[in-house]
């Protein structure tokens, strides 16, 4: 063990194998090849993954910069690991219905993304399919003041992505409704999203990781025409 060469050879050999198997090969082999499949009933052809990035990348950058992934996952594990895909109050606002096809996330769902933000901790709900759950206004109001939507929320306010300004003439069409101003500011001020906020919400609206990948997948929604990526 007194020779540096022997030592380096030893640790290279022991480290090279896991490096090759866990990093190099998966990076080359996991590029998802689109697979065509035909719907058993209609005979219509689909591909999975669709081959184009399904997400709004600008918004994903904001998602990363604000550190959303530290509390939210984008990974639905099989049910033997937990129930992450849906809860009673996940439904569209005011309803308890199941809004989405539910299945675990697969590698192809992240196709075309720069990095799969699978998640670090799960402090808030899983966001894999958040695009189905709310509309844009809800997201803006929620980001501006999370506790106004969920009083138990531990999410911080993302006020810095919004601008509060004095109303000049017409109210902006983008101005957030349901914002509680202090005193008599309600008629004088409005809150409008910055480009970053719009990008972030745009990204959240595109989070629909549920592309059907074969005819065997049960489709929970009534509208199963197309690839479900209307956005």
């Amino acid at each position: 063990m007194n020779s540096l060469k022997q030592f380096i050879l030893g640790i290279t050999a022991t480290f090279f194998v896991p490096w090759l198997c866990l990093i190099v090969i998966p990076h080359n082999k996991m590029k998802a090849e689109p697979v065509e499949w035909a719907d058993a009933e209609t005979g219509k052809l689909f591909t999975y993954p669709a081959g184009k990035p399904n997400i709004f990348r600008q918004g994903q950058i904001v998602y990363a910069q604000e550190g959303c992934a530290h509390c939210h996952t984008q990974m639905i594990r099989p049910t033997y690991m937990g129930f992450e895909s849906w809860r009673p109050d996940f439904g569209k606002e005011g309803t308890v219905e199941l809004p989405i096809r539910i299945r675990e996330t697969r590698s192809g769902d992240y196709d075309g993304e720069q990095f799969a933000y699978l998640g670090i901790q799960r402090i808030g709900p899983d966001l894999s399919n958040v695009g189905y759950r709310h509309d844009e206004n809800w997201h803006h109001e929620h980001l501006y003041n999370p506790q106004s939507k969920r009083d138990f929320s531990m999410m911080p306010s993302f006020r810095h992505l919004y601008a509060k300004r004095r109303i000049k003439g017409q109210r902006s069409e983008h101005a957030l409704a349901n914002i509680h101003f202090k005193n008599d500011e309600t008629n004088e001020y409005e809150v409008i999203p910055t480009e970053r906020a719009k990008a972030l919400v745009g990204y959240l609206m595109t989070l629909k990781k549920d592309d059907p990948f074969s005819s065997n997948v049960e489709d929970g929604s009534e509208n199963n025409e197309g690839d479900g990526k209307a956005k």
Binding site: Y110, D111, A116
Partner: peptide, 13 residues
């Protein structure tokens, strides 16, 4: 370039 999921795995590794 490469699979986004492989990148997440690389991060965990």
């Amino acid at each position: 370039p490469g699979s986004a999921v492989a990148k997440a795995a690389t991060n965990a590794w």
